[in-house]
Structures are given as structure tokens and as C-alpha cells.
Design a protein around this nucleic acid. Sequence first.
DNA 1: TTCGTTGCTTCGATTTCCGAAGCAACGGCC
DNA 2: GGCCGTTGCTTCGGAAATCGAAGCAACGAA
Lengths: 114, 114
Amino acid sequence: MAARAAPKPGRSVRGSKTGRPVMAALDLLGRRWALRALWELARESRGFRELQADCGDISSSVLRDRLRELVDAGLAEQDAAGRYALTALGSELGAALAPLDGWAQKWARALRRP
Amino acid sequence: MAARAAPKPGRSVRGSKTGRPVMAALDLLGRRWALRALWELARESRGFRELQADCGDISSSVLRDRLRELVDAGLAEQDAAGRYALTALGSELGAALAPLDGWAQKWARALRRP
DNA sequence: TTCGTTGCTTCGATTTCCGAAGCAACGGCC
DNA sequence: GGCCGTTGCTTCGGAAATCGAAGCAACGAA
């Protein structure tokens, strides 16, 4: 249970008391599965159980916590059918993180031939 | 103790057995303080204790683990003076994540007037 | 009405993280 | 040389986050 409020800009978060927005983002995203859930939702809206499966069978309790945080932070919401989807803000974050894919491929290449 | 190998592309990581590079990245960065440490190093190279202070007094044991992983993954290294610095690859990741700052400011604005 | 699926919740076991303490090595500085 | 402050860690016990299997009410299809 529990599920305290998600980190948000303007408030003191783990590792920073200044309230600087990016620090809140780093706290929010630096939790296990947060980035992955966001990444998956950026691809497509999905229901809880489907999302869980697509995240490699993440524990349902943790997925619930992460989703709650994303919703609380205004990055995700549930549509009429109950499916989870990113808000406009969430989509923009997804777009901001999109370069990660290209970088990771470069990373893979670099590690193959050091 | 412990400190197993960092997640890398091509290998099975938490939440994905396909070896897709971006999944390894999401695993690596989705650990507490990993994003923050990378973010700080992207700004400037620093020694262990200074980095610890700048990360809001993160526990030294965890910082050590995260740094080990970043080094192991080829994203960071120690210079002649022993200071931690990003490699070329690490810097590119930092650059790929740079838009996060701008996004976070937008997030802050959006939450102020909902 | 039975059956399968979904969206969760619970809770005990594990893993991760925290944080205070300690320590060897390296300067300065006298 | 001897003393002091700083640095880069390591150790380890306790707290917190995560896991994972189980269960359950609600819903739709048959």
C-alpha cells in the first residue's frame, strides 16, 4: 500500500532540496521500471496486464506504484476504456527521451569492437 | 561486496531477454542515483567525495556501485588524477539526455497552472 | 450460469539502499 | 620525521524498495 506522492518540481526530492525541476525528474525516473513503463507507454497505450507482460513480467505491485506516480505527476492517465496512456506532457517527455534508442545502438556497436 | 556486472546491450537484462540495446540502457539508468550521477558527471568531472556531496550526500556505498557500473559499461572512467569523468560514449548519452532539463521546466510550468 | 480475462491488492521473502563508522594513502606543513 | 586534514573508498547492520505468488471482485462472452 502506502504509495506516497510522486516527486514533483518545486518540492524537495531525493538528492536535492532546491526544487529544481530536473532533479525531480531524475528522482521520478530513477526508480526501477519507471523509465521502462514510460518507454512502453510512449509506444502505445495499453491495459494494466498487457503492460505488465510487455515489461517482462514486472511485479504487479511495483507496476501499480509506478503507474500511480506517473499519473500523479501528470504524465499518464487512464482513458475511457481504463487503458493507460501518456498525457501531452508525458508524450513530450517520451519524445525528449527518444534519442536514447539511437544512443543505445551506438553503445552496442562500441562495446562490440572496443 | 557483490557488485555484479552492469547491464549491457546484447545480454539478457532485467525486463528483457532480447538483448535490445535500449533495454539494457533502461535497466542501467533505472537504478537509484544512476541518472543523477551521470547528469552530474556530464556537467563536470569530479572526485568521489565531491561527487557524493553534489548528489545530495548519497550513500558512499551506492555511489561506488553506480560508478562501478558506469565504468563497467564504458560510460565513465577515471582520469590520471583519479577523478571520475565521462568517456566519449558517456558524453553522448549525456547529450542525448540533455533535453530533459528543458522538459522538466515545462513540466514545472504545467503543474503550476493545471 | 459458467468460464476466462482484467485490474488490481495483499503479504511474506529477497534484494537493494542507506548511513554511520572506519581505514589506508596521500599531501601539506612544520 | 611527525602531525593533521582530506580523499577514496570498504564494511556491515538496519531500513526501505522490490519481487512474486496468490487471491479476488467485476466484466464480457458463450
